[in-house]
Amino acid sequence: MEQSGEYTVSASRERVWEALNDPEVLERCVEGCRSMTVTGEGEFEAVVAAKVGPVKATFTAAIELQDVVAPESYRLQVGVKGGAAGFAKGSAAVQLAECSRDETRLTYHIEGSIGGKLAQIGSRLVQAAARKMAASFFERFAVDIGRSQGV
């Protein structure tokens, strides 16, 4: 499963970069996120209550920032364990480009896969659900950062 997207965020690239590395911001932007804990340098653990239709499960996600080129790009590596539901893993390559002093273009490219029961019986929904989750995160992120900038 692969997917790309692009957002223009009303904030400077430095500000966007900071936010992208701020566990509190990340916690606010992941739908259903119950907690986001720093577990190491560029490493977080998130507990997320995810809901896709009738499917409702609490996942633990290990997040690691890789290939960090501040303040331009990183790769967000995510591994999710969902107990009986299965697992998911993926990475989001995020790039920031300066449009102007207070406008930044964020582009992302996501690759991911799921396994276990979700893959076995829910394959028809995987792509749509992944698209929704990615869009939800970056939309929330764009709004969040806009709000923090007083936009």
């Binding site: 896969s113 396994g115 076995q120």
Partner: peptide, 14 residues
């Protein structure tokens, strides 16, 4: 099977 070896036709849904 998908490229990671998950059986994606693993029920009568698929």
């Amino acid at each position: 099977y998908d490229e990671t070896g998950q059986l994606v036709s693993g029920s009568y849904m698929d």
